[in-house]
Design a protein around this nucleic acid. Structure first.
Lengths: 221, 221
DNA sequence: GTCTATACTAAGATAGAC
DNA sequence: GTCTATCTTAGTATAGAC
C-alpha cells in the first residue's frame, strides 16, 4: 500500500489536481481528462492509481473531512467563552482563506445530499457537536454567556465563515473586486468576531470595545 | 412567445421538474432524460420547448434570481432597524423553508463561479446591496444600532439562513432528524433573530429581554 | 511499474414521422 | 404542433504494449 516514491508523488499530484477540478465542476462535471491534464500525467494513470472516478473523489473528500473535523479542540469548558469562540471563528476563517477548494468540494457534497459522507456526518460530526454543545451549555449555565442554542450556533458559524470560500463569486461581485485578498479576509473576520461574540453576549477578548474600523492587530494568513 | 395553453402548461411542468433535478445533481449531473421522466413528457420535448440544456438551466436560474432579489423592500431608513432586520431574517428563512430547491440551484451556480449570472450579481445585486448598505449606515450614524459592516452583514444573513436549505443534509445529520420540519425552522429562526439582532446591538422588537431558554411568544410560520 | 490505444456506454441534440 | 427514432460526441474504463 505504501508504494514507491513515484507512486506517492503521483498520487499527491493527482489528488491536488482533483481537488481543484472537483471544486469547480462538482463530481459529475469533473472529467478524468481534465484532472489528468492538470496533474500532468496520462489520463489512464488516474485509473491506475485510483481505480474509479468515485474512488478518486472519495480520496479527495477524506482530505476535506479531516480539515473539517479539526479545529474544535479550542472549545473546552476550562476556557473563557469569548477567547474560545473568537479563536474558533478565526480558525475557521483561516481555513476558508487557505483551503477554499477543499471547502467547495465539501459544500458540493453537502449540497447534493452528502451521498458519500452521510455516515461520517451522523456519526463523528454529530458526536463532536454534541460534546462541544455540552461545553457551551455549561458556559451558559455558569452565566458566562447569553443563552444561545449551541447546535444552531455551530451552523451559523460554519455558514458565515465558509460563505467566503464557497460563494466567493457572490462576495466578490458585491464588493466589486476580482478576488478576495488578505485585507478582505481580515475585514470579514473582524466583522464576524464582533457580530457573533456580541450576539452571544460577549466582548472580544483582545479587541478594544471601540467600534471604529481601524483594528488593533493583524493576524497571520 | 406567449404560445398556446398546452405550451404554457408543459413549460411550467418542465421548469418545476428541472428545478428539482438541477437542485440535486447540479448542471452537469442533471440529465435531460431524468427531467423529462419527472415532468412526464417525452425526452425530446425538452429540446422542443427549450432549445438546449443550458437554455433550460438559464430559465430555472431566472426564477431563482427573482426570488433571491426580492424581500429587501423591508429595509428602509424610515423603519426601526430591529423591526426591519428581524423581518428580513424571517423572510429569508421562510424562503429557505418554502423554496429549498431554488436555493440549492442558486447555491450550486455560485459554488461553480456563477458563470451564467455573473453580470446580474455585479449589476443588480451589487447595486441593491449598495442602496441597502446606505440605509444601515444611516441607522448606525443615528446611533440606532452598533457599528456593523453593512455588506458583510448581508453575507452573514444570507449564509446563515440559506444553510438550512443548501446544507440541509448536514443540519439533519447533526440534529439527528431525517428532514427539517416546521418546528426545526422555528427554532432556527428564533436562534438567528436573537443572535444577529443582539450582535447588531439591538433587541428583538416583540421578544422579552430575558435570555432564558423559554421564549415569551412564538412567531407565525 | 507505467503509459498507449481502444472498447463501451450514456447523454445531448436533431431530422423526420405522425 | 407534438413525439419517435437516430446520430454524434465525449467520457469512463480496460486490455495490452513498452
Amino acid at each position: 500500500m505504501a508504494g514507491g516514491r513515484i507512486r506517492q508523488e503521483n498520487e499527491a499530484l493527482i489528488l491536488r489536481a482533483a481537488e481543484y477540478v472537483f471544486a469547480r465542476a462538482g463530481f459529475a462535471g469533473a472529467t478524468m481528462n481534465e484532472i489528468a491534464t492538470r496533474a500532468g500525467v496520462p489520463k489512464s494513470n488516474l485509473h491506475y492509481y485510483f481505480r474509479t472516478k468515485q474512488a478518486l473523489y472519495r480520496a479527495v473528500l477524506a482530505h476535506t473531512l479531516a480539515l473539517w473535523l479539526s479545529e474544535t479542540d479550542i472549545i473546552g469548558a476550562e476556557q473563557r467563552p469569548q477567547v474560545a469562540l473568537e479563536q474558533y471563528i478565526r480558525a475557521k476563517m483561516r481555513l476558508s482563506a487557505s483551503h477554499p477548494d477543499a471547502s467547495r468540494v465539501f459544500a458540493n457534497e453537502l449540497l447534493h445530499g452528502a451521498p458519500e459522507i452521510r455516515d461520517v456526518l451522523s456519526g463523528a460530526l454529530r458526536a463532536l457537536v454534541a460534546r462541544k454543545a455540552g461545553v457551551i451549555r455549561e458556559w451558559i449555565a455558569r452565566g458566562e454567556m447569553a443563552s444561545v442554542d449551541p447546535q444552531h450556533l455551530f451552523f451559523t458559524i460554519w455558514a458565515a465563515t465558509q460563505t467566503y470560500a464557497d460563494f466567493e463569486s457572490q462576495v466578490c461581485a458585491v464588493l466589486g473586486v476580482s478576488h478576495l485578498g488578505q485585507r478582505d479576509y481580515e475585514q470579514a473576520t473582524d466583522h464576524l468576531v464582533r457580530l457573533l461574540l456580541r450576539g452571544c453576549g460577549l466582548e472580544p477578548a483582545g479587541l478594544a470595545v471601540e467600534l471604529s474600523s481601524t483594528r488593533g492587530e493583524s493576524h497571520e494568513f
